[in-house]
Design a protein around this nucleic acid. Structure first.
Length: 109
DNA sequence: CTCTTGACTGAGG
DNA sequence: GCCTCAGCCAAGA
């Protein structure tokens, strides 16, 4: 038995993996989808522990579309490059036309 | 056990 | 649009 989706962290990883190519979502959106709307910080915390997993953390940003977690990636612009490679424009660590690339798990699922 | 920090968000001024 | 405060939960010192 492998209860991966039993812990809050693992649920976050699962949702993050469901984010389609060229799309992004917010910590709060994932938290809300998991039923912990007030625990958006936990999603970010989970992302911090997502290293070594197959979790596209670069597709998860804060609600303002700001790459708050870019400093947790290796380089200084790795996160931005990954997103731009998917067709997303980023200026000053902020996603442009975010509403156009926004992906809400609560609505998509 | 207590205190601080943190990849957040919403509400109020 | 910007700043501040409060709430949320977990891990580390």
């Amino acid at each position: 038995m492998k209860p991966e989706t039993n812990s809050f962290f693992d649920k976050v990883y699962d949702v993050a993996r469901l984010i389609p190519y060229g799309k992004v979502t917010s910590y709060g959106a994932i938290a809300t989808y998991l039923g912990a709307a007030k625990s958006a910080r936990m999603v970010g915390y989970a992302m911090n522990a997502s290293h070594g997993k197959d979790v596209p953390a670069h597709r998860v940003v804060n609600k303002k579309g700001l790459l708050t977690g870019k400093h947790h990636f290796e380089g200084t612009n790795l996160m931005q490059q990954l997103l731009e490679s998917e067709g997303i424009t980023i200026i000053d660590n902020q996603i442009q036309d975010m509403s156009q690339h926004y992906w809400d798990p609560s609505k998509a699922l």
